[in-house]
Amino acid sequence: MQFADAVTAWSWNPLADIRQMWAFPFMVNAFRAGTIVAVLAGVIGWYMVLRRQSFAGHTLSTVAFPGAAGATLIGVGAVYGYFAFCVGAALVVAAVPRIGHEAGGEETAVTGTVQAFLLACGFLFVALYKGFLGGVNSLLFGSFLGITTTQVDVLAAVAVPVLLIVAAIGRPLLFASLDPAVAAARGVPVRPLSVVFLVLLGAATAATSQITGSLLVFALMVMPAATAQNLTARPALSIALSVTLAVLVTWTSLTIAYYSPYPIGFWVTTCAFACYLASWAVRLARGSLGRARWYGAGARVPLEVS
């Protein structure tokens, strides 16, 4: 965070700036890790928004904090804590399917209590592991400093199988997400698909938490996907757009964060949120021009114009 003092300022010569930034191995690792995470978040986030499971994603990202803090406490790398807790929590959510949905008063009370308890556990781990106070902020709001080559390798080792699985089940998953009843009638295994997807979601949330921090996972997983779905209703184009936006947001944020004292989580949310707002402006402009066909799948795009 304090690197702005140590390095020369932004010089408006992009080539020189990038060369200077990449002279530091930790920045190269940050870009590698950020790109892997952005691709993963762009793809999985797109399905998550389509399936309206952003709430499950929110719960899983809450779990990431005690996971990382607990792993640090017992002396294992935080990266393993992220994956163990998030994938474990995804299996729990899958086993109790109603957790994933917002419903009556009692269910929201249960979910709220569970979330608060998990965060409290994270805080307990942090308190037990003394002298970790600065670390809390980077666990919650993200950090790009000190990403090791091992960490990049672990992220890649998780991302590749996850993306391969998505490629394999992409079409039936799309079908099952858009119309579960018809998909089930046509012989698509809707329930197993939703379990597999939740596990993939857990892995993607764990990976994203490491860049954006566990409180700001929405920034990379939801906003680029929601932006893409606002702009086009064609699935393949929309996924590609979501990934592109996530990667661009990550690269821009890493660059700004390198030259500024503020945490990367703030820049990622701000860039992604700006894209999201812009997509709304585009959508409203198209709507006023009467080109409703652009979002023909109106029931499935994130928000309905009211």
């Binding site: 920034a219 703030f266 949310t269 701000t270």
Partner: peptide, 10 residues
Amino acid sequence: GSVFAWITGL
């Protein structure tokens, strides 16, 4: 969710 993620980022 997007608005509150941004507020938290702020």
